[in-house]
């Protein structure tokens, strides 16, 4: 992984602080999350303390510090989805997969993220699994979707 990150950093050879966010975005795009070693490498490259980088990265919702699961589930919690039962859906997925929002399951198979609004309000409540939308969910449908996913 170290190698992939160094190749990425080479693209930003004469960079200043204002390339920090684009660099972190590129790393996350490439390896899926920001590992401790990635943050150290960026620190060396930009001659910045890692605490500052960590402080910035934790400020923004986009950055993750553990790898995504094979199945990355995003639950929309925008206003329209909230009114139509997003909370029950989050509850249910958390109980069923035994992970909390923001976590990845131990076997690395599932990760759950609650996102503010994915802009598909006409289809609410909505979730997306690896980018594929499942819309107008009911308790029954979400149960079926998870059964299909887990394979029981």
């Amino acid at each position: 992984m170290e190698n992939r990150i160094e190749i990425l950093l080479d693209k930003y050879s004469h960079s200043r602080r204002d390339s920090l966010i684009p660099i972190l975005q590129d790393i996350q795009e490439e390896v899926g999350y920001l590992s401790e070693e990635a943050i150290i490498l960026v620190g060396k490259h930009l001659e910045m303390p890692t605490s500052k980088i960590y402080g910035l990265a934790t400020f923004y919702n986009q950055f993750r510090f553990e790898p995504k699961g094979t199945f990355h589930i995003q639950v929309c919690h925008g206003t329209a989805c909230h009114m139509l039962g997003a909370v029950s859906i989050i509850d249910f997925i958390e109980k069923r997969l035994k992970i909390k929002a923001g976590q990845t399951s131990r076997n690395g198979k599932y990760s759950l993220e609650v996102v503010p609004c994915i802009g598909a309000c006409s289809q609410s409540p909505v979730i997306s699994i690896n980018g594929e939308y499942h819309s107008k969910l009911t308790a029954e449908r979400i149960k079926q979707i998870l059964i299909d996913l887990i394979g029981e």
Binding site: G85, S88, K95, T138, A139, E140
Partner: peptide, 9 residues
């Protein structure tokens, strides 16, 4: 119970 309403339906 997570009060989802599936049983009532």
């Amino acid at each position: 119970c997570i009060k989802c309403g599936a049983c009532i339906e």
